[in-house]
Design a protein around this nucleic acid. Sequence first.
DNA 1: CAAAATCTTTGTCCCAGCGCAAACTCCGGC
DNA 2: GCCGGAGTTTGCGCTGGGACAAAGATTTTG
Lengths: 238, 238
Amino acid sequence: MNELPSRKTLPRLDESLLKHLPPFSRLERREIRAILDQATSRRYDVGVAIFDEGAVAERFFMLLDGYVRVVRITPTGEQVTALHIPAGQLLGIAKAIGKDTYPATAMTATDSVVLSWPTRLWGRFVSEYDGFSTETYKTVGKRLGELNNRIVEMATLQVEQRVANAVLRLINQTGRKVEDGIEIDFPITRQDLSELTATTLHTVSRLLSGWEKQGLVQSKRKRITVLDPHALVVLSQG
Amino acid sequence: MNELPSRKTLPRLDESLLKHLPPFSRLERREIRAILDQATSRRYDVGVAIFDEGAVAERFFMLLDGYVRVVRITPTGEQVTALHIPAGQLLGIAKAIGKDTYPATAMTATDSVVLSWPTRLWGRFVSEYDGFSTETYKTVGKRLGELNNRIVEMATLQVEQRVANAVLRLINQTGRKVEDGIEIDFPITRQDLSELTATTLHTVSRLLSGWEKQGLVQSKRKRITVLDPHALVVLSQG
DNA sequence: CAAAATCTTTGTCCCAGCGCAAACTCCGGC
DNA sequence: GCCGGAGTTTGCGCTGGGACAAAGATTTTG
């Protein structure tokens, strides 16, 4: 993950922050300037909630750096992770789907930097900024597709395959090349993985141990490095 | 389900068909007339595909009567049902989420009647018709929410609870009061239910038999009647 | 640097529910 | 009214992986 100035207010926001991000990429410098001037920037430590399921959606967000887990909490207190959102995507866009409250909780999976705007600006963004709404709906579509895939996965695959898939997805989205393989770019516990794959941390632990013995992965506390992605792909296919 | 003229062309489409459906409800008679004049109406027998996953999205649809299952087929040929869509909703709206192909297959769960328009009209509908896009995105949001719920459900509930939930959802969406309870308003097999709940038809059969012995439901071939919804709710809570 | 908290590993037990197999029932068609 | 196919029921054996338990390892805190 990139190094970022922590805690203290960021220096005046630079246009280049947004220029290359799809929802804004068609805009002119002047427009981006206006958007930035209305934004609030904030840094969150790992493991805190950016917003909570059910809360009134007072703001919408752009994740500038870090990763966010979208989780839902069941009546019995279990957490289920629905999605991982990488930097560069909008989140908390309840308005885009006609809701006034957030449909899930967003927790930082790493220290993260986020811009946000009051929801009342949503309508203006949609109507005034070329490409904003199109790109937004592409994001929504992508997430729909991912949820759909996870349902199919959970319905048809065994735990080992699901975990393999989850790890592969994570290294695709967030992988970083390291000396001897590809490492998941943020700290992730067995528990986290189990919440992503609908199993228990014990089972995940056993699987990772097994894979490590076979030389497919290497893992320390909160870190997973994939040494042999291809073998994992094979595993994930059943 | 209503009786409908089969196969042959329907009589001239009446404005009242659309007037009360959310995406069109804010429109004036004249606008609805124009929309109808551009629509193709078609009746589908039960069990056929309206469109297939991956196909180029040449048209989008409004389900006027019947029920549609949104299914995905895995590499190994298993079917997983992601959603049930009741009459009155749009479907095949790939354009709304920035896609050019359909993200899943839509199969009729009953004989159904569907209007459709060429995708190239999508842009015009969105820009010209007041409320159309808002309502459409609400639909998308609703589906996102449902998928989300199903993930949570599959991640945390036992099979019996999932099946109970599925049955309850179906009677909520599509239930019809009959003499001694509420019946699911379309033919549904054990197999269908198992595809909705990620289990096997055998397990579903056993569960239904059990429930029937306890007097909670009554079922014949392709028909399920819930006699004691409350008891099912209790079951579904674990 | 000791103590506490967090994360991980591993062992043992056990059962929900799947796979397989076979029989039964209902329905539509000829 | 009989036949064939689709849908359903039920029995039985097996196993993936969850539950519970406990100990180790690593990091954080005071």
